[in-house]
Design a protein around this nucleic acid. Structure first.
Lengths: 216, 216
DNA sequence: TAGATTGTTAATCGATTAACAATC
DNA sequence: TAGATTGTTAATCGATTAACAATC
């Protein structure tokens, strides 16, 4: 089977579709047209149809889309029908928050290990998982089929830790450290740079204030 | 002064420029050309020059850009020369992590209040700020010139709380709740949907696995 | 002045939207 | 069959890249 390259713009929209379809499913809605969904989600119907058609036709002319079927298919595309094991490096508040988040488990992401440098945190438990010293990381990754590493450590050291994780065989890094990692091709990285996000917000506040000041 | 509308694509790149320039400044680098910066950041020099020119010329032909000047200018564009007061709604681990993050303060974001529904958390202190009951929110926002509300509560209730915050006069919401808020024009919202981000990562892992399987 | 590098215009590329034929 | 709505092609729009004249 040939796999067409799908743009990250499309991929980025899939989780939102998935969320809306999940809600509709829970409300007992059986079918929906691209038009109805477009009004709900405030995007164009055209975009919805284009997006879905990247993966082959999920709908039916004259009918629309079956909500439950579409929901499941998008889940499959996102790989949510598969199980991934993740570990968290950095057992501070953010690491604990992510470790404690039950919804990840529901989507197939299994929280299986947690590591920290700080001796004071070793042994602490988050949702049944004990914090281990960094020295245990290598053996743990290799023995437990860990796919994903979540980096919730300060930016100093993040690049080094990432490099080590890759050498241990990790496939993907969810990076909360405020630094760009440099990983080999084939290792997936998803950055969550919280302060970048806050700065964008700050820009938009300012921009709006200026706009208002101007039109007075 | 006329203000040109800048695309969010450009705005989204500014924090990253800001970070690199800050690092260069700390390393004592005085000037940099778009070419050098492009190699460092792995973007095209053309894009760098286009981006900066949205805000007027920051460079000098034959010389390049003065690092410190450019750093400061981007900071101003992002509104980091101004002070914003923020409160956090939801004093769980994520809320505590964000409240405890010192770097925000350095950028002009002052953590000034924290609220939660859960009586067990009331009175708890995060970086000198005491958790207050939700009933205190209205008076606090009105009396303390709070600009930004950070929503770290479950998605149930988030829409309601956001609506209330807007009625109290908040300007912007940094939304960590996994739901789309519906706010009036002029209220800035920046969503951080963590599970969406994790799903994208999951997609890319899968995609790469398939690619490898195919080419075997 | 010559060399370097920006600022800016033009060309290209990709993503979004519109339109409509296919088909349920 | 007629009406509805998809799948898909074509048109438009916006963002990125290339090219080069301006200028330090």
């Amino acid at each position: 089977m040939e796999i067409k390259e799908i743009s990250q713009a499309v991929i980025g929209r899939l989780p939102r579709y998935y969320r809306y379809l999940g809600d509709l499913k829970d409300e007992g809605v059986e079918r929906i047209s691209s038009q109805e969904l477009s009004e709900l989600m405030k995007v164009t119907a055209s975009q919805i149809r284009q997006d879905f058609n990247n993966f082959g036709g999920f709908g039916q002319q004259g009918y629309g889309y079956n909500v439950e079927y579409l929901y499941k298919e998008i889940g499959k595309i996102l790989g949510l029908d598969q199980t991934h094991h993740f570990i968290i490096i950095g057992a501070g508040n953010l690491g604990q928050a992510l470790g404690g988040y039950l919804n990840f488990e529901r989507r197939g992401f299994i929280f299986s290990g947690m590591f920290d440098q700080n001796p004071a945190l070793i042994g602490k438990e988050v949702r049944g998982v004990k914090v281990q010293p960094m020295e245990e990381m290598e053996a743990f990754v290799k023995n437990n089929a860990v796919d994903i590493a979540v980096l919730t450590i300060p930016k100093t050291g993040a690049v080094d830790v990432a490099e080590k994780l890759v050498s241990y065989g990790i496939k993907a890094i969810w990076n909360f450290a405020h630094v760009d990692l440099n990983v080999p091709e084939g290792i997936q990285v998803e950055n969550v740079h919280l302060s970048d996000s806050l700065m964008k917000l700050s820009y938009n506040i300012n921009r709006y204030d200026q706009l208002v000041a101007e039109n007075q």
